[in-house]
């Protein structure tokens, strides 16, 4: 076989691999949507589940998801963005940043079920007076720990992408460091930081294992963050594995997938706009 033929064969295989990757995605999404969308109706979205989720809708799990996502990000975003600001604006690379980066890498590598065990021991049991045991708040604390690495990394990157002249200009005008960060650097980095926040929303919406041990999994409509609840992802798991109502599971999966896809599209759109703005 000549080198040209070898190349042709190899490139055919590479094309095949890339096509297979796209095909796998298409099959999974297509299958979930084809099986799930017929179950989705206005009633499905707005009625509460009955018979353990065997019939009715998924309203309470949609509300649970909204409460839970909002609470997680309110807890995580200030910390994550703050850490990103410190790493990008207040420090130089040294042993401290190495330690912090190792912590971030390690945190990103912890399996979500281990976060679940930790969240159960700390937030559900030890901090029961604050969180009321299994509750949206306990789940949100746990999920906040999980998304910190994403938030810190994306905010740090977004801040580092801001041109140095902005800072120099502001400082030259007599502004303090903090004023420079808040009035000049943060606004310029806002789209990038927002992308990180939205990315975290996507992660939190799909999270299941850690929430199994912290959120409580109640079918009832939550009235506050101190009550147990379930998210769509948990509802999907419990309905498929413990109730065996596959049509409801597919319906929930379709809504969940569309939510995640929507969040993803939003991120892409924001990133693209941000890049366009930087190029201009």
């Amino acid at each position: 076989m000549s080198q040209q033929q070898a190349q042709k064969l190899a490139f055919t295989l590479l094309w095949g691999a890339a096509s297979l990757t796209v095909l796998i995605l298409t099959v999974i999404l297509g299958y979930i949507l084809v099986q799930g969308l017929p179950q989705v109706s206005w009633e499905f979205l707005t009625k509460e589940p009955t018979e353990m989720g065997r019939s009715g809708g998924i309203f309470s799990s949609i509300v649970g998801t909204l409460y839970f996502v909002a609470a997680s990000l309110i807890l995580a975003a200030p910390l994550g963005i703050g850490a990103g600001i410190y790493l990008a604006e207040y420090t130089h690379d040294g042993w401290f940043t190495s330690l912090v980066r190792f912590g971030i890498d390690a945190l990103a590598a912890v399996p979500s079920i281990v976060f679940g065990l930790f969240g159960y021991a700390l937030f559900v049991v030890a901090l029961k007076p604050v969180t009321h045991g299994w509750s949206i708040l306990s789940g949100a604390f746990t999920a906040a720990c999980m998304v910190l690495p994403t938030l810190i990394r994306t905010s740090e990157e977004a801040l580092r992408a801001v041109p140095q002249e902005y800072r120099e200009g502001s400082l030259a005008l007599g502004a303090t460091r903090w004023q420079t960060v808040v009035r000049v650097v943060l606004p310029a980095a806002a789209p990038g930081i927002l992308t990180g926040v939205i990315l975290s929303i996507g992660r939190v919406v799909g999270e299941t294992a850690a929430l199994l041990l912290t959120l409580g999994g109640s079918l009832r409509l939550p009235r506050s963050i101190f009550e147990p609840a379930r998210t769509m992802a948990i509802h999907l798991y419990l309905v498929a594995m413990e109730v065996g109502a596959m049509d409801m599971a597919f319906g929930t999966a379709a809504v969940l997938v569309i939510t995640v896809l929507g969040v993803n599209l939003l991120t892409t759109w924001l990133t693209r706009r941000h890049i366009m703005r930087l190029l201009r």
């Binding site: 298409t26 999404l29 299941t208 294992a209 798991y237 999966a253 969040v263 993803n264």
Partner: peptide
């Protein structure tokens, strides 16, 4: 075509992979 597909694969929640 391929790059967004990879990103979407990363975004699909693990319970949905499980159901599939």
């Amino acid at each position: 075509l391929v790059r967004p597909a990879v990103e979407l694969l990363a975004g699909i929640p693990s319970v949905v992979y499980g159901l599939f």
